[in-house]
Design a protein around this nucleic acid. Structure first.
Lengths: 151, 151, 151, 151
DNA sequence: TTTT
DNA sequence: TTTT
């Protein structure tokens, strides 16, 4: 193997997280975050370019996202890139790229007075999934998903 | 701003790099790399999942890729995520995600006896672009692209 | 070669930066930042452990640090580990480890109402050093120090 | 909190790992790795500077290190910086900085024909510690040490 | 003390 | 010496 797939992002939520609670109590949250960089164009004018990233978090992290993350807030995200294939309605192969996060730290909001803070990781102990024993299956294992989810 | 967009990958090239030399002598290389992770499925059987990443490198790094990188080789890549929008032939909005690398280190090949090695970064000094003085425009500025490229 | 030395930190400044302006107009700033992690001890009580990191920044980044960073503020730091050897007064070999930063992003302060923000990188263009043309010598080259500094 | 302490290294082992098996079956391995960077000095001559990092791995990763890592080999290390304080024999406060790894990937050796490969993470499942149930205590929790070790 |  |  000898492979590494790691992403580190700091950006602001473009929307409130959308959370789904699957059978078995497993939670999944999705939200977009924006990163932006500024550069000078050929004429020397300052330009800004925004990149949008689709974040997915599972279990305990999803519950944290549901409770604490809001549109506009700044978060630190550590995770991996995952590209899914699907067929569109015309039957063409399409690709969708997401960041599956296994570590998330709130960095405070826009202007809402929240002081931010709080680091959360994808571990069994932070999961409240009923009856779940994800044990060594924690953050680090990169196997933190049920095998047959409907997407 | 306060944003960060960073990707770190170690994986193997799925194909030889495709290199284009643009007007002005600027080179661009593209190649896919695979990362894989193994996990146990519900039955306890070991499974492997491969993720493919489309890498883009510019200038000096593209020239290094052209000369030294071959299908099967292992590379360390540091860069950022960039998602481009385009319209498909039906006029639908599509997205394509790439990793724009600004640091690349060869880690040796499959079994070809090459010992690998060599770290390369997106700096002016590693660029042989004719007449180019990219100065502070180096790796770090994240502004390492011409403004109007045909893709 | 084939080597990588990369550090990513988010933490709070323990003190205001100490800035020195060397001959030639080159600036160096140093400041400590704290990272902390919480864990449960054997009795199940929540404990917190703080780690201190000595940050060093050069040139433009040092000037940014001097102007904008204050004790208590939160920063994102990207850099490399550097351990220096020196002899103490008894003539014993000692080691001192620092983080030489080449990318720095302010993440906002404690409670002072500052909204933070602002990404800065070690590039020629962000340096105001008189007469300096650090060109390709930017962030990425990891050669961003004069050769014979008095420490 | 809102803090992050992350290190990513690729380097070569300067020595074989030294492994200790503590009471309770917990293993700890230590080994130095070298990273090097090349730069041009003022006279334009190529210089190389080597940085040494002291790596510490626990439990399953220590056992992997004991079995598979040898002097000269190349490894990818992901972990965190930890600086310990101690008093030298003269009673002076001293500091020692180590990298506590929670992810380790062998990248192959010098010239010994080993093909390398293999990613290992600090999870319960990769640990063979007798009777251990490190469960959610895995890699990600950053609490992967017994509370009162003799160093 | 590694590696190129 | 920070922050929560």
């Amino acid at each position: 193997m000898a492979s590494v797939n790691k992403v580190i992002l700091i950006g602001n939520l473009g929307k409130d997280p959308e959370v789904r609670h699957l059978e078995g109590g497993v939670a999944v949250a999705r939200f977009p975050i924006a990163t932006s960089e500024s550069y000078k164009d050929k004429s020397g004018n300052k330009q800004e370019k925004t990149e949008w990233h689709n974040i997915v978090v599972w279990r305990g992290l999803a519950e944290v996202a549901e409770k604490y993350l809001k549109k506009g807030q700044s978060v630190f995200i550590e995770g991996k890139i995952r590209t899914s294939q699907y067929q569109d309605k015309e039957g063409n192969q399409r690709y969708s790229t997401e960041i599956v996060a296994d570590n998330m730290t709130m960095l405070g909001g826009r202007s809402d007075g929240s002081t931010g803070g709080g680091n959360y990781q994808e571990t069994a102990s932070s999961s409240s999934s009923a009856g779940g024993n994800y044990g060594g299956n924690a953050s680090a294992t990169q196997n933190d998903e049920p095998d047959d989810l409907p997407f």
